[in-house]
């Protein structure tokens, strides 16, 4: 029930966000997470309050699955003062430190080493925090992520590396970009790696639970390759650009395994309808709050630039 609620919430949030991009309420577009919801839902479900995550440019799903307020996330996408980041971050940088969301990161592969450092530090400070860090197949070719695998394995850091393999780094097919296999790269560092059906929230949850137990008990990092398919564009600019790197046949085949349907089929129809209605009511209210929120004052454009601004004259 909870997993279904999460994937449904992410799906409907994203569909509404795409509409807000079209209507101009969200400036700059978004990277829709539609089709990949099972991964965020399955990874975040077994995490506890003191755990932390890092997210990606395609990050709304992770942030929602971790429990962020949809109204404040939507307000952030709209650049409003009530947004998670007070309108200073936007779609690609949503963060909620109170929930252990150390931020979505717009540089591919960057957050893996940040999450590794955070998990190492929490452990050193005597906490049993586990970090989960999301990235795509494209990040598997970023040297600093491979460096992070090495550090995490060397120092037995409680971090879970979650690779969302949606088959494409923007338009580049994974087969044209990744030599060898994705899991073998993690295994080369001595990190246990498994490939999981990333369309099925329960499968992801199951694999993550094992990884969390390993991390929490001091056995170090785990690598999860979650195979998935991005139903929508890499970014909403594609809705106008009409890129043709994926055939319509391929897209139809990819969409045939829909995480919302897979998880929804496990519920009684009436229960599902109740959840769907709750999600719509929540998102209706979120839209009202976000649209009614103030825009930041341009005079405060560089507020928060420094944590210690007093040294500036």
């Amino acid at each position: 029930m909870n997993l279904y609620r999460t994937v449904r919430l992410i799906r409907r949030f994203e569909e509404r966000a795409v509409e807000f991009v079209r209507s101009g309420e969200i400036v700059g577009g978004i990277h829709p997470y539609i089709g990949q919801e099972a991964i965020a839902a399955g990874v975040c479900a077994p995490l506890t309050d003191t755990d932390v995550i890092t997210s990606t440019h395609r990050g709304h799903g992770h942030v929602l699955a971790r429990g962020a307020d949809p109204a404040r996330l939507l307000a952030e996408l709209m650049g409003r003062e009530t947004g998670l980041n007070k309108g200073r971050g936007g779609s690609m940088h949503a963060a909620d430190f109170g929930l252990g969301i150390l931020g979505a990161n717009a540089i591919v592969g960057a957050a893996g080493s940040i999450a590794t450092g955070a998990a190492w530090a929490h452990r050193r400070l005597g906490r049993d925090t586990v970090a989960a860090t999301f990235f795509g197949d494209g990040a598997m070719n970023e040297g600093m992520l491979l460096e992070a695998f090495n550090l995490a394995a060397l120092w037995q850091v409680p971090v879970i590396f979650v690779c969302e393999n949606n088959g494409y780094a923007t338009t580049m097919p994974v087969a044209s970009a990744v030599a060898g296999s994705i899991t073998a790269r993690a295994e080369a560092f001595g990190i246990p790696a498994v490939t999981v059906d990333g369309q099925d929230p329960e499968k992801v949850l199951e694999a993550t639970t094992v990884a969390v137990e390993r991390a929490r008990s001091g056995q170090g990092p785990t690598f999860l390759e979650c195979t998935t398919y991005r139903f929508d564009a890499h970014h909403t600019f594609e809705h106008r650009a009409r890129l043709t790197y994926r055939s319509t046949e391929e897209i139809s085949a990819g969409r045939s395994r829909d995480p919302v349907e897979i998880q929804g089929a496990r519920l009684a129809a009436e229960d599902r309808a109740v959840v769907d209605a709750e999600v719509e009511a929540l998102l209706d209210a979120a839209a009202v709050i976000a649209l009614g929120s103030a825009h930041p004052d341009p005079a405060a454009a560089l507020e928060f630039l420094y944590a210690s601004p007093e040294v500036l004259r």
């Binding site: 080493s113 590794t116 530090a121």
Partner: peptide, 20 residues
């Protein structure tokens, strides 16, 4: 640290976010 400047620089950022 190993010779992994990019990762250990971000690692420090992560550790700082965790309170160090």
């Amino acid at each position: 640290t190993p010779l992994s400047e990019q990762a250990f620089t971000n690692f420090a950022t992560g550790a700082a976010l965790a309170g160090m």
